[in-house]
Structure formats: C-alpha cells, structure tokens
C-alpha cells in the first residue's frame, strides 16, 4: 500500500509543478514527472512477489510470471510521452524566439 501511496505523491509533485511553476522548461519537466509516476504505477501493480520475468527462454519451465501487458503499455506510453515532450520543447523554443523569455507570466498575449 505504501508504495502505491508514494507513487500517487510523485504524481501530485508533478501536478504541483505544472500548476505553480512559471518557467516553460520546468512545466515540461513536471509533466514528465507526472508521466513517470503513472508508468511506475503501471509497473508496480504488475509485479507479483517471487515471479519470473515474462520471457520464455530455452530450458526454463514456465512458472509464475510478472504480468507482461502493463510493461507493453508502459513502453507505448513512454513513446507517447517522448513525442509530447519533443513537441512541447519545440513549442517552447519557438515561444522563446518570439517573446525572448521562458517566463509564463510574460507570455500573455491571449486573454485566458
């Protein structure tokens, strides 16, 4: 139970960062932390105590295995996060080119 709670706290740390930070790069990093906490959550509930890693090898018999599906999901979500981080960084670079600042409070041409 503690480990799930820690995971949720990590999620909240990321969320706190997204809400309160003013720097574009810090916002992107906070989003990444949120993503990592979710990935961690997926991995830890797939863990079975005393289980084998989910790969068939020559000469080993199939015993209890860790659930492999969440690991596949995590791989997919890592790819998606990679894409979104790249996109956000590209937007941040462009925004820096236009406004000459990373401070979100100074990037306010739209009303809200």
């Amino acid at each position: 139970m503690t480990i799930y709670l820690m995971c949720f706290i990590l999620f909240l740390v990321g969320f706190y960062g997204v809400i309160t930070k003013r720097d574009l790069v810090k916002i992107i990093l906070s989003l990444a932390i949120m993503g990592y906490s979710t990935n961690l959550f997926l991995i830890i509930f797939a863990y079975r105590t005393g289980a084998h890693y989910p790969i068939l090898e020559k000469g080993t018999s199939v015993t209890a295995m860790v659930d492999p599906l969440p690991q596949a999901l995590v791989l997919t979500s890592i790819v998606i996060e990679l894409g979104i981080t790249a996109l956000l960084v590209a937007l941040a670079v462009r925004l820096y080119g236009k406004y000459k600042t990373f401070d979100i409070t100074k990037i306010r041409r739209l009303l809200g």
Partner: peptide, 12 residues
C-alpha cells in the same frame, strides 16, 4: 506568437 502560446497551453 499567439498561436504558439495557445498551442503550448493546449498541449500542457
């Protein structure tokens, strides 16, 4: 500039 700003907000 406005479009990048909106897109960044939307992406976050």
């Amino acid at each position: 500039a406005e479009e990048y700003e909106a897109a960044f907000k939307y992406a976050v």
